[in-house]
Simulated assay, not measured.
Amino acid sequence: MKFHQKPNTFVSHVHLIVEQLERSLSFYQGVLGFQILDRTESSVSLTLNGKDALVTLEQPADVLPKEPRRSGLYHYAVLLPDRKELAKVIQHFVDIKYPLQGISDHLVSEALYLADPDGNGVEIYVDRPSESWEWIGEQVSMATEHFDLRSLLSEANGEKFTGLPSDTIMGHIHLHVSDLVKAAEFYLNGLGFKVVYQISNQALFISSGGYHHHIGLNIWNGKGVQAPSRNSVGLKYYTIVFADEITRVSAIKNLELLGYHVHDYTAVDPSGNHILLTVSMD
Rank of each mutant, 00 (worst) to 15 (best):
residue 1 M to I: 11
residue 3 F to C: 04
residue 4 H to D: 08
residue 5 Q to D: 11
residue 5 Q to K: 07
residue 8 N to V: 11
residue 9 T to D: 05
residue 18 V to S: 01
residue 21 L to V: 04
residue 23 R to C: 03
residue 24 S to G: 06
residue 25 L to V: 13
residue 26 S to T: 07
residue 52 D to H: 14
residue 53 A to S: 14
residue 53 A to H: 08
residue 55 V to N: 05
residue 57 L to S: 06
residue 59 Q to K: 14
residue 64 L to M: 09
residue 70 R to L: 07
residue 77 A to L: 03
residue 79 L to H: 05
residue 85 E to D: 11
residue 85 E to C: 06
residue 100 L to I: 06
residue 102 G to H: 12
residue 111 A to C: 02
residue 116 D to F: 11
residue 118 D to H: 04
residue 128 R to S: 08
residue 128 R to M: 08
residue 141 S to P: 01
residue 142 M to S: 07
residue 146 H to D: 12
residue 150 R to F: 09
residue 151 S to W: 14
residue 155 E to P: 00
residue 155 E to T: 04
residue 157 N to R: 15
residue 168 T to I: 12
residue 169 I to Y: 09
residue 171 G to I: 04
residue 172 H to A: 08
residue 184 A to M: 08
residue 193 F to W: 03
residue 196 V to T: 09
residue 198 Q to P: 01
residue 199 I to M: 08
residue 199 I to G: 00
residue 205 F to K: 01
residue 206 I to D: 00
residue 207 S to N: 03
residue 210 G to R: 04
residue 218 N to Q: 01
residue 222 G to R: 00
residue 224 G to V: 01
residue 226 Q to K: 15
residue 227 A to G: 03
residue 231 N to S: 03
residue 234 G to C: 00
residue 236 K to W: 00
residue 245 E to T: 10
residue 252 I to Q: 11
residue 261 H to C: 12
residue 266 T to I: 15
residue 270 P to H: 09
residue 271 S to Y: 08
residue 271 S to N: 06
residue 276 L to W: 13
residue 276 L to Y: 13
residue 276 L to C: 10
residue 278 T to G: 05
residue 278 T to Q: 14
residue 280 S to A: 14
residue 280 S to L: 05
